[in-house]
Write a protein that binds this DNA or RNA. Structure first.
Lengths: 330, 330
DNA sequence: CTGAAAGCGCTAACAA
DNA sequence: TTGTTAGCGCTTTCAG
């Protein structure tokens, strides 16, 4: 079947060791033999068996990245840029969808133990750091976008507190007083910081938030529509809403049209991310621009540095800049 | 460092073979020994080294899928559903972005040869079948969405000819006579069939298409905007345009607003895919609904069948249904 | 500069 | 039902 290194050796009249040296660009192989090896390899259509190499070298040249869902544009863009950098450096990127399932997350973490990956990136996290920590002995771990409390590894992060504060402040400055908050799925560090930023601006302005103005688990366009329907039948509805995603905001705007609610006349809507959709909607969605690609690139740069230059794995926060994009929805 | 099967054997007072049997659920292991093995494994925190398993078994439980870009919503949705089915059947899905680069595609094909994957799915293809064919000896290959001419393997496909014909017919029935066509990147089977479907409806109606009404390489929102700008300055512009993607259509509609062109008054715009954006835009985009998830699921079902039941790899067309979704943009 | 040989961790005959 | 043994294909000392 597939030719092995031994077949090449035989054909070239050399030893497997020499073939291996050529494959791995070792110095001290005469040009003459090198040519012989290349010729034999070509003739046989030889390619080294990666599993044998991995077993021997105890390395896989593969990095895993854990995300919620690839169909979420934020993650697909993040992953795209990570993949490019990884490939440029000779690494493969394994994309792992957790769907916010702790069990699946743990399974993926086990890839480190079973030597199927050299390193792992969390772009979404469910587990406690105390659990994750145990896997550090098997390879470097880096956080990006979200992180686990008290994690002692590099964290590439956008200041959610300040960005939410900025967005909320914008609403307040525009004169809105009945603010609603629409958060994501879980209360991770990201969710917590974002909520605190919102609250901080609200308290500073001395505003009061009714219980019914709080929404959570809003992730999709559909979620946005549903929330808007709830708002549409409220006795005392909010006059502005801060959402954690452009998709939710888009769903709300779409549904508002059906319900006869004017955006921003009756309800101002803020998104988050600055996805393409934020610009395309009518009205355009005011949002916080997160440089997703940059985040992916920088995260992978850190990881490559760890892997290639064997830099020490230590805690540091790398801030990603953000900015407010004002459009018509507020 | 990491405990090996031998460590477990020693601790349990058994042979490595027995441990292996337990790991692989072989019959004929007494419950008593099994318990001993589990206890020892747990105590050592043992996990089998997959590279050793792969080398020995000559299997990876990994399937690759080749796509253009993961940030394209069509592909990210496709991949999401494939991943779910793959995981349910104990397979990992390796996502490979080719960016329409033949060289990269070939690199990924080589994963079959180097035993890093068991099988491969093309959801986008650049190479000739004559090239791809040579890799069949290393594992099954299946096409999905697009395919290579004369490929002799399963092809999961949406009838592009009929769908384009249907969409174009819709425009003609609405009374538009100056039709423009806006195609994708390359002239693959998918692109060719779609174009033929368009032409067929056009010829049937006896319409004339000006040279300047043909556009190609349109993929993104930005591309759509640019094309609209070109149209906006034409002496004799089209009155309806058939595009190959909702994103292109969305870009055109957005830009039309800036240019003072009415959609559909001055220009009717048709999309393709029925992405979420098609519903969200104002006007809503008339489009062809492609059941992406179903496509992903069915493709993976075929692949799993091939892999698990060792079904024979033979040519067959599996049709995915489509339907026209009429909204306001036409 | 090159080759011989050991062994990465596991599985599957073959024996017992 | 269990153990012994021979590799899977490659890399890396260690000798020469």
């Amino acid at each position: 079947m597939m030719p092995t290194i031994e077949d090449v050796a035989k054909l070239a009249g050399l030893s497997p060791a020499t073939i291996s040296r050529v494959i791995n660009n070792h110095p001290y192989v005469s040009q003459e033999k090198k040519d012989l090896v290349f010729k034999a390899m070509k003739e046989l259509g030889y390619v080294p068996n990666s599993n044998a190499q991995r077993l021997r070298k105890q390395k896989t040249e593969t990095i895993a990245v854990l995300i919620e869902r690839i169909a979420n544009p934020f993650f697909s863009q993040l992953v795209e840029s990570m993949d490019i950098i990884a490939n440029e450096n000779g690494y493969k990127l394994l994309i792992c969808q957790t769907n916010n399932d702790k069990r699946k997350e743990l399974e993926y973490l086990n890839l480190l133990k079973t030597k199927q990956i050299d390193a792992l990136i969390f772009a979404s996290i469910e587990s406690e750091w105390s659990v994750v920590e145990n896997f550090l002995q098997y390879g470097p771990i880096v956080f990006c976008n979200d992180f686990a409390e008290s994690a002692s590894v590099p964290i590439i992060y956008l200041d959610q507190y300040r960005s939410a504060y900025t967005g909320t402040k914008h609403l307040i400055d525009k004169g809105y007083t009945k603010l609603s908050y629409c958060g994501g799925s879980k209360l991770t560090c990201l969710g917590r910081d974002r909520k605190n930023g919102f609250m901080s601006a609200v308290e500073e302005a001395g505003l009061n938030i009714l219980d019914q103005w709080w929404f959570k688990d809003a992730l999709t366009i559909e979620d946005g529509k549903q929330i808007l329907r709830k708002i549409s039948v409220m006795d005392n509805p909010p006059d502005a809403i801060f959402t954690g995603s452009d998709e939710v905001a888009a769903g709300m705007i779409k549904e508002a049209k059906s319900c006869g609610i004017k955006v921003p006349g009756d309800l101002a809507v803020m998104g988050f991310d600055n996805q393409p959709i934020a610009e395309l909607m009518e009205p355009g969605i005011t949002t916080i621009c997160q440089p997703v690609k940059q985040m992916g690139i920088q995260t992978m740069d850190v990881m490559i540095d760890l892997l290639v230059n064997k830099r020490k794995l230590e805690h540091r926060f790398i801030q990603i800049p953000f900015h407010l994009v004002v459009r018509e929805s507020t």
